[in-house]
């Protein structure tokens, strides 16, 4: 048993919509997997099925060796699930929330454990504050602390850093890596590219289906993108003219520069040719970024879905 999660053809159907549509997924133990995809692509729904909160309509799978369909209660004991929306009790203090969680999971040496958690998440300052009075970032910190109180084997984090400042975000990721080193498996959904790059592997889903999966380098390579960076006067007018051109997948301004990507290198060259002669512009070929790749995947998927 080296895989924390394996699911096969997992689907969830709401009404007529296949919100999650035949997902196959394997997450080895001790790894951090990033879960990416546009809004409404089915990330939260998939995570909920993995932790036994939703019954899959089709497919099968195991989580920590237990069957998703029949052993949800066993799974719940060993999983730490951090919901996308803050879901601890706002009219309880930080400490009371942690105590409650510890009791739910039957944590031994409760007091010592909670002191420990308060310490390592820097929550001591706020331990007697009502959770509802914390700022957004501190709420997220409490949530992460609370879902790891019982030493879970698998952490499912649904956009844990939404609304968290960069410093705190970095600390979050330090914690996540520390946990992974101690053997915990992590599946974390995010919309941040820098966070995706901190994962061992990323899974990109769209319309409930996995579009691409692998290390960030794999994901970029599989997109087969060519990216040009153009710098100089009036690059924005180029942006206007290239907008909607079939050879161009992404056009992203970065300060005075513009990044132009396309999946067909030759077609892209042809599209750019008219502008190449303009004086005062410098053109350089750049390695494509993860963001370029994701936008490409997103657009391709949108075209396919019509």
């Amino acid at each position: 048993m080296t895989d924390a999660v394996t699911v096969h053809r997992l689907s969830k159907i709401y009404g007529r919509r296949r919100v999650v549509d035949g997902i196959d997924l394997t997450i080895p133990k001790g790894k951090i997997y990033g879960f990416l995809g546009p809004n409404g692509s089915g990330k939260t729904t998939t995570i909920r099925m993995i932790c036994g909160l939703l019954k899959p309509d089709e497919g099968s799978g195991t989580c920590l060796g237990f069957d998703l369909l029949t052993q949800a209660e066993e799974i719940k004991k060993r999983v730490g699930y951090m919901t996308q929306r803050f879901s601890y009790w706002e009219d309880l203090t930080v400490r009371e929330n942690l105590f409650f969680v510890a009791d739910m999971f039957g944590v031994k040496n409760k007091r010592a454990r909670i002191e420990n958690v308060l310490e390592s998440f820097g929550l001591h300052v706020y331990e007697n504050h009502l959770a509802g009075t914390l700022s957004g970032g501190w709420k997220q910190r409490l949530a992460l602390a609370a879902c790891s109180v019982h030493d879970p084997d698998l952490l499912l984090l649904d956009e844990p850093t939404a609304g968290v400042d960069p410093q705190a975000r970095r600390e979050f990721w330090d914690v996540i890596h520390r946990l992974a080193e101690s053997g915990i498996t992590v599946l974390v959904s995010t919309h941040y590219m820098d966070e995706a790059e901190r994962c061992h592997e990323v899974i990109y889903i769209s319309y409930g289906r996995i579009v691409v999966q692998g290390t960030t380098d794999d994901v970029i390579a599989q997109a087969h993108l060519t990216t040009w960076r153009v710098e100089g006067k009036d690059v924005m007018s180029i942006k206007e003219k290239l907008k909607g051109h079939p050879a161009v997948t992404t056009l992203a301004p970065f300060g005075d520069a513009l990044h132009i990507s396309g999946s067909d290198a030759r077609a892209l060259e042809a599209a750019l040719a008219p502008f190449r002669k303009t004086v005062g512009l410098t053109w350089t070929k750049e390695p494509s970024s993860l963001e370029d790749a994701f936008i490409y995947y997103m657009q391709r998927q949108d075209r396919q879905e019509g």
Binding site: T83, S87, Y88, M104, F105
Partner: peptide, 13 residues
């Protein structure tokens, strides 16, 4: 309504 149900249901109770 407050979303805490999701949390409660995710716990082994």
């Amino acid at each position: 309504e407050r979303g805490t149900m999701e949390n409660l249901l995710a716990m082994p109770i």
